[in-house]
Measured scan of single mutants.
Amino acid sequence: MAAGGDHGSPDSYRSPLASRYASPEMCFVFSDRYKFRTWRQLWLWLAEAEQTLGLPITDEQIQEMKSNLENIDFKMAAEEEKRLRHDVMAHVHTFGHCCPKAAGIIHLGATSCYVGDNTDLIILRNALDLLLPKLARVISRLADFAKERASLPTLGFTHFQPAQLTTVGKRCCLWIQDLCMDLQNLKRVRDDLRFRGVKGTTGTQASFLQLFEGDDHKVEQLDKMVTEKAGFKRAFIITGQTYTRKVDIEVLSVLASLGASVHKICTDIRLLANLKEMEEPFEKQQIGSSAMPYKRNPMRSERCCSLARHLMTLVMDPLQTASVQWFERTLDDSANRRICLAEAFLTADTILNTLQNISEGLVVYPKVIERRIRQELPFMATENIIMAMVKAGGSRQDCHEKIRVLSQQAASVVKQEGGDNDLIERIQVDAYFSPIHSQLDHLLDPSSFTGRASQQVQRFLEEEVYPLLKPYESVMKVKAELCL
């Protein structure tokens, strides 16, 4: 049975990233139509530049190519590739079939990587351009969430054990800070992308030097003109047959890092959902379990974690691919890159769409948070109580021993009897502590235990987050809708 299948058929496997999760716009960027249309555009740009620099290419040939950029006979191309065992030459023939007058000058002087690699770089750039505003929107939604809850005390956790208090907004800023680093890295790697350009079979530009009869300047002009037509500021000066596969490492490393950030955020949300302090959106008709109707599973956060793990592992592909590119190139890269580049971007696209949807509907339960604080705060307040007693004339050592005994009794009630923490009640009825009984409410005010959390939130948002989001103001209103 021949390899390949009808990918629109229910009898043929289709990647869930495309069929179930990723956005239509990201799927289109990695589609065959987008790819092969870009090949034709690159052939047109090459012909236009070659004509401008004096090669015998007519206006009629150029116009014929322009008129057929979208006229792609995919069936013919597939048949040609089956016959020739070469995808680029299959599309040269297919393009030439609908451009008979231009057929002889299509791909003039070029090698397969002229269309293959340059198209990949265009796709990487455009895919990054799709991700950047999506990530900015996630940051914006979380920034709104953090600002609104900047002063809401909550129990902090280290080692997932109760620690000092923080605020809900401050905790959210930990998430935002990681995503801001990801946004900066995505922008950097996007701006650092260079075009492969017009380089020939081993990167020496020998074929173009021959076409222009040894004119170095025209060869350099050709490279520059096509690079500018493709919208790049610069091209690699040095290439082998391909652009260095280190570029793929750079791009997928940034995406993998984004995956790590999203995994951490969504894990926190899942843990908070278990504590009943916070939940992701839950639709009115949504079913959490087929057997347990009360369940409210954090399905979206779980999906993000599941896909983020996949995204983090994909960076190993370009690392290994770059390491086995012998001399000017081997074909070890080809099949692998067809999979890992598309999957990385479709996965990143999915987790950003999902995280935006989550961040637009996060639900906080202040009463649950308050109750958990009441359970733990008495123990945390013991040092403040000791200091207040010393100020009232008591002995630190005597007070410490009193607190120690009462704390152990209260802990026994919590752990052995399943009761509430009654340390404060014990202190309130103990005559030894009568000098500070009137101060206990103040000493137990949760806001006095959150330090500068709310001020940190305000400063972080104003100095770091809002300036970073400013270039994306025009796209901030787009909502994230999930079908599944």
Results as ranks from 00 to 15, higher is better:
Ala235Asp: 02
Val198Pro: 11
Lys415Arg: 12
Asp216Cys: 11
Arg83Ile: 11
Phe195Tyr: 02
Val198Gly: 04
Tyr466Pro: 14
Thr242Leu: 12
Ala206Ser: 14
Arg300Leu: 04
Leu131Tyr: 11
Ile339Glu: 06
Gln408Ile: 02
Arg194Val: 08
Ala230Glu: 05
Tyr21Asn: 14
Trp39Val: 08
Gln375Ala: 15
Lys295Met: 03
Val368Pro: 01
Thr350Val: 09
Tyr13Gln: 10
Glu25Trp: 05
Gln210Glu: 02
Val254Ala: 06
Leu211Ala: 00
Ala102Asn: 06
Gly4Cys: 12
Phe208Asn: 01
Val189Cys: 10
His93Tyr: 04
Ala322Tyr: 15
Ile424Pro: 12
Val226Gln: 01
Tyr294Pro: 13
Ser257Ala: 13
Ala308Gly: 14
Ile57Glu: 01
Thr111Pro: 11
Lys134Ile: 07
Leu440Thr: 00
Phe28Trp: 06
His159Glu: 00
Ser412Asp: 14
Gln458Val: 13
Ala77Leu: 12
Phe236Val: 10
Ser31Arg: 04
Leu341Gln: 09
Gln408Arg: 09
Arg338Gln: 09
Ser67Met: 14
Thr330Cys: 09
Arg141Met: 13
Ala163Pro: 00
Lys284Cys: 04
Leu155Gly: 02
Glu148Ser: 04
Gly394Ala: 13
Asn185Ser: 06
Gln456Phe: 12
Ile249Phe: 13
Ile62Leu: 11
Ala103Asn: 04
Met380Leu: 09
Gln455Cys: 00
Ile237Asn: 14
Phe195Ala: 06
Ala344Arg: 08
His93Met: 05
Phe208Gln: 01
Arg329Ala: 08
Phe145Cys: 02
Ile436Arg: 09
Phe208Lys: 07
Glu228Thr: 07
Trp326Gly: 04
Leu124Arg: 03
Cys305Gly: 14
Arg452Thr: 09
Phe460Ile: 13
Gln161Glu: 04
Val198His: 01
Ile122Asp: 04
Arg125Met: 11
Cys98Asn: 01
Val226Leu: 12
Lys147Asn: 00
Asn421Pro: 07
Cys98Ile: 10
Val364Ala: 08
Tyr243Trp: 11
Lys264Ile: 04
Ala78Lys: 11
Ala230Arg: 05
Trp43Lys: 10
Thr330Lys: 03
Leu468His: 01
Arg337Asp: 01
Pro162Gly: 01
Glu343Asn: 13
Asp441Gly: 10
Pro56Met: 12
Lys187Asp: 04
Met312Val: 14
Thr38Asn: 00
Glu328Gly: 07
Leu132Ala: 09
His217Phe: 06
Gly240Trp: 02
Met380Ser: 09
Glu401Leu: 05
Ile427Gly: 02
His442Leu: 10
Arg303Asp: 10
Pro467Asp: 01
Val475Tyr: 00
Arg137Phe: 07
Leu46Gln: 04
Leu423Asn: 15
Asp268Val: 14
Glu417Thr: 12
Gln397Glu: 09
His310Arg: 11
His442Lys: 01
Leu440Met: 10
Ile237Tyr: 15
Leu124Gln: 07
Ser23Ala: 15
Asp420Leu: 00
Arg338Trp: 08
Phe345Glu: 02
Arg14Tyr: 15
Thr52Asn: 01
Val405Glu: 00
Met225Leu: 04
Asp333Leu: 11
Phe157Ala: 06
Phe236Gln: 09
Asn274Met: 00
Met292Glu: 10
Ala453Gly: 11
Leu131Ser: 05
Glu481Cys: 14
Arg37Ser: 06
Glu462Gln: 14
Leu108Cys: 10
Cys180Asp: 01
Val168Thr: 02
Lys276Trp: 14
Thr227Ala: 11
Ala335Val: 10
Gln221Ala: 03
Asn353Ala: 09
Ile373Leu: 08
Arg452Trp: 04
Asp248Cys: 14
Glu464Lys: 15
Gln41Phe: 15
Glu425Lys: 13
Arg459Leu: 11
Met278Lys: 02
Ile436Glu: 09
Ile424Arg: 08
Leu271Asn: 05
Asp216Ala: 08
Cys180Ile: 15
Leu17Trp: 14
Arg404Asp: 09
Glu401Cys: 06
Asp420Phe: 15
Ser207Trp: 14
Val414Arg: 11
Val414Ala: 15
Cys27Arg: 08
Gln356Trp: 08
Glu417Gly: 13
Met389Lys: 13
Val475Thr: 05
Arg300Glu: 00
Asp332Gln: 01
Val368Ser: 11
Glu64Phe: 01
Ala110Leu: 04
Gln210Cys: 07
Leu121Trp: 06
Glu463Arg: 09
Gly169Lys: 08
Leu108Glu: 09
Tyr365Gly: 15
Glu25Leu: 08
Gly5Val: 14
Arg141Thr: 13
Tyr365Leu: 08
Trp45Ala: 11
Phe282Asn: 05
Gly169Asn: 01
Ala348Thr: 03
Tyr34Gln: 10
Gln439Arg: 05
Ala431Pro: 15
Asp332Asn: 02
Ser31Tyr: 04
Ser12Val: 15
Lys224Tyr: 14
Ile176His: 02
Val315Phe: 03
Ser306Asn: 01
Ser301Trp: 13
Lys367Ala: 13
Phe433Asn: 01
Arg303Asn: 15
Gly203Leu: 03
Phe345Cys: 12
Asp182Asn: 04
His400Asp: 00
Leu152Met: 11
Thr450Cys: 13
Ala230Val: 06
Arg337Gln: 10
Glu50Ala: 02
Ile269Tyr: 04
Ala3Phe: 14
Met389Asp: 10
Ile385Phe: 09
Cys483Trp: 03
Thr111Asn: 15
Arg303Cys: 15
Cys27Pro: 02
Pro16His: 01
Asp248Phe: 02
Phe30Glu: 07
Val457Phe: 10
His159Pro: 04
Gln375Tyr: 13
Thr158Asn: 10
Met89Leu: 07
Leu142Lys: 13
Gly8Glu: 06
Gln164Arg: 08
Val364Cys: 03
Phe145Pro: 02
Trp43Thr: 09
Ala102Trp: 10
Ser334Glu: 01
Thr119Leu: 01
Phe232Ile: 01
Arg338Asp: 03
His86Val: 08
Met181Asp: 10
Thr204Pro: 09
Leu307Val: 03
Lys75Asn: 06
Cys172Thr: 10
Gly5Leu: 14
Ala18Cys: 00
Thr321Arg: 01
Arg14Gln: 14
Leu341Pro: 14
Val254Asn: 15
Leu44Lys: 06
Cys340Tyr: 15
Thr154Val: 02
Arg404Leu: 08
His217Asp: 04
Lys35Cys: 14
Val29Gln: 15
Leu142Ile: 04
Ile339Arg: 04
Ser434Thr: 13
Lys470Gln: 11
Phe208Ile: 03
Tyr13Leu: 10
Ile249Gly: 02
Glu302Ile: 10
Pro378Cys: 12
Ala136Trp: 00
Cys98Ala: 03
Asp59His: 05
Thr204His: 01
Ser151Cys: 02
